[in-house]
Computed example of a mutant assay.
Amino acid sequence: MSRPFADHLALILADINGRARYQHEPDGRDQWQTPAELFRTGAGDCEDFAIAYWDALRGTTGRHRIACLVLNGYPEPHMVCTTRPSPLAAEWVLDVLADVPYRLADRSDLVMTAYQLGEEQGGPAAWHGGIRLQRTPAKWVDAYWRLMACGDRAQ
């Protein structure tokens, strides 16, 4: 990864992590917040931070996705934002539980990427194993359209 790209990712991670704190949602509650909602409440879980990182990267060169990771030793999946500046470049991760961006391939506890979320053709989309899914999870559809409606960017 080029130094300017690494520095850019580190700035996004530090900025967003400095504006809200990580807080696991209570059992039975799983609302996905837009960045504006995250910053207004001052706290969010991994989905909320992943959406904020993704929003900060939107409009920049590369492929940016919200990824649901299945990890050894974790009882629940974990959401992060992945980014790849070009098709042949390594996939990098912005993760609320990490102080710095890291390469997805360096994650030794990764079992699999369950699915990825993002944007395609002006709307919310989902992929599994690189294949576009016919159905996009409703929580992402809802969060995506709220994000587009508010016009607030995470940057």
Rank of each mutant, 00 (worst) to 15 (best):
M1L: 09
S2M: 07
D7V: 03
I12Q: 06
I12G: 06
A14W: 09
D15V: 11
I16V: 05
R19Q: 14
E25G: 13
D30N: 04
A36N: 06
F39R: 10
R40Q: 15
G42F: 13
A43T: 06
D45H: 09
E47W: 00
D48G: 07
F49S: 01
A52Q: 09
Y53G: 05
G59L: 15
T60M: 11
T61C: 08
V70A: 03
V80Q: 06
C81R: 03
T83E: 08
P85Q: 12
A89H: 02
E91Y: 15
L94Y: 08
L94P: 01
A98P: 00
V100P: 02
R103Q: 10
L104Y: 11
D109T: 10
D109C: 15
M112A: 15
T113L: 08
T113E: 10
A114V: 13
Y115S: 03
E119G: 11
Q121D: 11
Q121K: 15
G122K: 04
P124E: 12
P124V: 03
A125H: 03
H128E: 11
H128G: 12
H128P: 06
H128N: 12
D142A: 06
A143F: 01
Y144N: 02
R146Q: 07
L147T: 05
M148G: 00
G151V: 07
D152E: 15
Q155R: 10
